[in-house]
Design a protein around this nucleic acid. Sequence first.
RNA 1: GCGCCCUUAGCUCAAUGGUAGAGCGUUGCAUUCACAUUGCAAAGGCUGUUGGUUCGAUCCCAACAGGGCGCACCA
Length: 697
Amino acid sequence: MPNLLNGQPYNPQEVENRIYQIWEKSGYFNPDKLPQRHKKSFTIIMPPPNANGSLHIGHAVFVALQDIIIRYQRMKGKKTLWLPGADHAGFETQVVFDKKLEKEGRSRFQIPRAELYKEMLEFTLANKKIMEGQLKKLGASCDWSREKFTLDGNIVKIVYRTFEKLKKDELLYKGKRIVNWCPKHQTSLSELEIKYIEKTDPLYYIKYGPLELATVRPETKFGDTAVAVNPKDKRYQQYVGQEIEIETVLGQAKIKVIADEHVDMNFGTGAIKVTPAHDPDDFEIWQRHKNEIPEPKQVIDKYGKMNALAGPYQGLKVKEAREKIVQDMIQKKLLDPAKTDPNYKHNVATCYKCGTTIEPMILDHQWFIKMTMRPKNGRLSLRDLAVKAVKSGKVKFATKRFEKIFFHWMKNLKDWNISRQIPWGIKIPDSGTEDVFDTWFSSAQWPFASLMANKKNDFKKFYPTDVMETGWDILFFWVARMIIMGLYATAQPPFRYVYLHGLVRDKERQKMSKSRGNVIDPLGIIDIYGADALRMALVVGNAPGNDPIIYEEKIRGYRNFANKIWQASRFVLMNTEDFKLKTKPKLNQRDKKRLRELNRFKKEITKLMETFKFHKASEKLYHYFWHVFADKIIEENKPRLRHENKKEKIAAQYLLLETLKITLKMLHPFMPFVTEAVWQNIKNRDSKLLIVEKWPE
RNA sequence: GCGCCCUUAGCUCAAUGGUAGAGCGUUGCAUUCACAUUGCAAAGGCUGUUGGUUCGAUCCCAACAGGGCGCACCA
């Protein structure tokens, strides 16, 4: 350990790796190896980072916050478990890997499935290893002996068990269903994985025999199986239930007119074409009128091109087909160009990853989870289980705001398509298909799965966990579904407390992204300023739920603070070398006042820690250490240290050493490295390692 | 359409029913003393607008303006 007394500025590079090794060797990251006084368990399951790249600044935020909570609770005497993991991250990793292949001039569609899987596994495991080193660099005091990977055999087993349970409870159905299909990634996506973008397209009015109807997608007309009108619409009552003769670009045809409440009389002409194979609403209409109209007709293939049913348009992309068919229909007087509204604004579903327009499509063997229906022998639907748990306070949100958003989302919950057609993931146990699970289906089970698949009795000892800390951007993707699946599979909530942090932004409030060129690489920052400085910069002023703003000057400020701690500590230690603990100091009024002030401060910080206000606690600690302890208390006592009267000197030494030790302890969760490094230089320290010191109260 | 949030110092954010704080930045001064990765000091705010409740509002309520976000969405 570097000698603090050598007079050099604090050098994190020299200290951090060594300190981390000392902690790791001590075994204190492992709850089973903590000293006797640690009794009651306290658990955080780490959101497993996606093993498809390096850690970015967002990961650093969660490491900082979770490590603060864990270190604080450990010092308080809890048997703390912070369980690390890595996520194979299904679709997300597939997208990353597809890009990588593209760069290499390859494509996943030309690589045999098994071979591709093997290559992706190697890629993921390599990344996982890199990430572990990066988590250590950030100071994460997690229990590496319990690390789990989402593709571990015993995790998969638990995921299958839940799948079977859902089947037994009739909360799962499989079938030919319409799904959100991304033609680029060649997979279906859940409602959460699509993004609606407002687009302006022409709205055409086309002739269907005696009727006229409005559409933006005339190219799907080959897949029309009916025309629908509102049952209350007097204009069309004579046609309802009848087959009408229509002329199409391909010749004469017959089509049935049906009545459905869904149709808005006030939009367009009040009559719509029904294309169940390529429109989710039309699919629903077909479900309601199965006996009246024929089976859906697929006219667009998986690549977004017209198929054989489109006759002369076969092979054309949807957009090209549309332009062509519009021209042809104008010629045949089936479309009146004068009526076309060229500026019709509507929302188009796109893939949240690539922006490709979603092509709704009917696929077979699609598994869906019923979110709002009651299970076979149960009273509450999956949704109601979760809503009840949050309403009753069994699961609490650190920020009320997110509770409201959570309820609102739950209200609109739809069934969840958990089938994906990509190779990367956990295979669905279904002989009819090669599909894999939506990665969030297994992630939703992570808190209990990672404990059950771990050491004996871990589940019993550490579940339900205490805090789930993650970004608010995955509130629905992950947090809500963990609550749902946790309650369903274990009859207990997966965690008691939800703390959601925001998305890291730069000074202009821009999201950080490679394309914007504003990314701050946490590892690069650590190399320059140290992990403590980065952690503080990410925590101070970062209230839960707000987007933290980070810039280099801020980080530099906390690097300076780390040095301040180092230098002030040096001064105190230099001047207290001859101080004996046993000596009883004779304190004056000012000393007593300072100690009372420190006492109040301890209480204040503890209260902030208990209420998860780390953004405040860190700020106050910074202020106290620098502007009260260093600027005032040390300065006030400098003359006394040189005083001829021994008693004065001893009193000053006592006051300085006591204040230093207590502030170091309170700073430790936030800046673990520099505080531990100083602690190692204190001769008469209580415990050998600051990491297991008692939290001052 | 439904819903949520924000608006406070140049910037980033706090706080409280009794006319507001911190960091960064800015300006001036200091510096053989633990620390220039420093110290001392200063400037800087009718808390978005308009009403209401109150003895008193930045805080509670209503409306408005601007900004952000979530959900839904129909041809």
